[in-house]
Structure formats: C-alpha cells, structure tokens
Amino acid sequence: MIALSHLQKLEAEAIFILREVVATCANPVLLYSIGKDSAVLLHLAMKAFSPGKPPFPLLHVDTTWKFREMIALRDETAAWLGLDLIVHINHDGVKAGINPIASGSRIHTDVMKTQGLKQALDAHGFDAAFGGARRDEEKTRAKERVFSLRSADHRWDPKNQRPEPWSLFNTAKKAGESFRVFPLSNWTEADVWDYIALERIPVVPLYFAAPRPVVRRGDAWIMRDDDRLPLQPGEVVETRMVRFRTLGCYPLTGAIESDATTLTDIIAEMRASQSSERQGRVIDHDGSGSMEQKKQEGYF
C-alpha cells in the first residue's frame, strides 16, 4: 500500500468535496477571484471532473478596482479552459459612485463585493458556491464548516453550524437556502504554494517581485495600477521591487518589498516571514471581530 503524502491527502479531500457538491446540489458555481487560492481550486475542479469539464460556471464579482493583470489572467484562463465565465458588477454601486478611495474600504467592500455577490447568486439561482477560503487565514474562518449553510438572505449563523463527522456532509437544504463550500478548508498558505509549484499552475504575475510604481501609505506600499488613484499631498510615486502575498482591490492591497522572482524564492520567503498573509488586507483590520461580522452579513 502506498501511503499518500500530505499534499495528496489534501488534494483527494478537495476533489471529494467538489464532487459531493455536484452530486447533491442543483446549480453550483465556482467563485473565481483570480488569486492563488482560486487558481488551485480551479485546477482541482479540472481534475475532479476529468475527462469532462467541471459542470458549473465560474463567477467573478468584479469591484472594478482589481489589478489589470488579474483581469487579463481571468479572461485568458476561462477562454483557454473553455469554461463559462460570469462577470458580475454591482451597477447600483457604480451609479452611486462607490469606490475604495472616497467611500472607504468598509463601504466599498460591502457594496461592491458582499452585495454584488448576493446579487449575482440570486440572479442566477445558484444553490452552492465554491470558495477558495482556508481555515488558516483568519480566526473566524478556522471555525467555518466545509459546507457552510446560508439562509435565504445569505446570513451565516456561527452558533448553529452543522456538525461534519468524517466526510459525511449533510447537504440537505430548504428552498432558498444555499451553501458556501470550501474545498481548501484544510490547506495552508504553504500548501497552496507547494501545490502551485508541484503542478505548475499559472498565477497572476503580481505575486512575483518586479519593479512597480508604488506609493507609501501608512505601513504599506500601494501600487498605482492606473491613474484613478489620487496622490495625497507629499506622496511621490516610486519604482520599487515589490510583490503581493494576497490580491484584492488594488488601493486596498499592500505590496511587500521583495526580490522573490520565482516560485522557489516565494516559498523560501514565506517560510522565513514573520507576518501573516492577510496583513496586507486593509479590510481585516477594522476590529478584531470584524471578519465574523462581515461573514454574518454574507461576505465570503
């Protein structure tokens, strides 16, 4: 008997979860947010349903403030794999002039991401949505189930989660209820990078260090991806060797100074690092319980 390695066990578990959803839910969708976790999730989905294609579309909730390189990879990937890609923009939010600079990170994330996601799920009647969230990312996520039940208005009830013994997922739900499903629940940031290296999965070039135009804001380097980012008095755009550990909306995502230009460099840098990957995410720092609150409101 060949004992499976740690990554092979995680891979088998994720594929099992992907298939379980397709076998028990009527209308699943994969939330594709273009980052490294989404890339791994999509790669696993291609494997799970091989030799066929994944029997569900991809959904990207576009806040209109994503890095341009992310959008390019998104369109290229969907076309190359021949998958349906649904891009949803909350046009009400755009009309109301919501943006991360004037409205602040909290309102921007709520309107463009959380409300946008709910609109898209409701409009297409999706009853299960795969996400690439991992339990090691954040304390509230550590308590989340693999099959996370949401009420008809997408709320999460953290005190009333269904137990998930062994790999027996209770997939029963009432009309209007839906699942958020996290096949990568048990993966860590290190596992994701090891797997990307092992399987040679393409990721957004922004993860690799390159000279990029950035400005210093607080403790973070913010990349000026286009000229919508107004400069504050005294700010100067500099070109520095930077890369991103995590990718979100560009004005809300801090880069780190780095010389890591290859996967091997990235993995080595991550192992030596003394800060968590979500440090660069502005929205997590709105208060200690803030992720729990956002999730209750329907955020992924």
């Binding site: 004992a3 390695s5 740690h6 990554l7 092979q8 066990k9 995680l10 891979e11 890339a39 999509l42 790669h43 291609m46 494997k47 091989s50 030799p51 066929g52 294609k53 990937t77 190359w80 794999l81 021949g82 090891d194 797997y195 990307i196 290296a197 092992l198 399987e199 040679r200 999965i201 393409p202």
Partner: peptide
C-alpha cells in the same frame, strides 16, 4: 484532451513528502 489548468507532472513525488 480537456486541458488542466496547470501543466504539472504527476504529483506522486512532492518536493517534500511529509506525512500528515
């Protein structure tokens, strides 16, 4: 011939095969 996202090798031999 349905493509897979990564064109990686079979993952029988990981870089570090640790147990879990």
């Amino acid at each position: 011939t349905v493509p897979v996202l990564g064109d990686g090798p079979a993952n029988d031999d990981g870089p570090r095969t640790r147990s879990l």
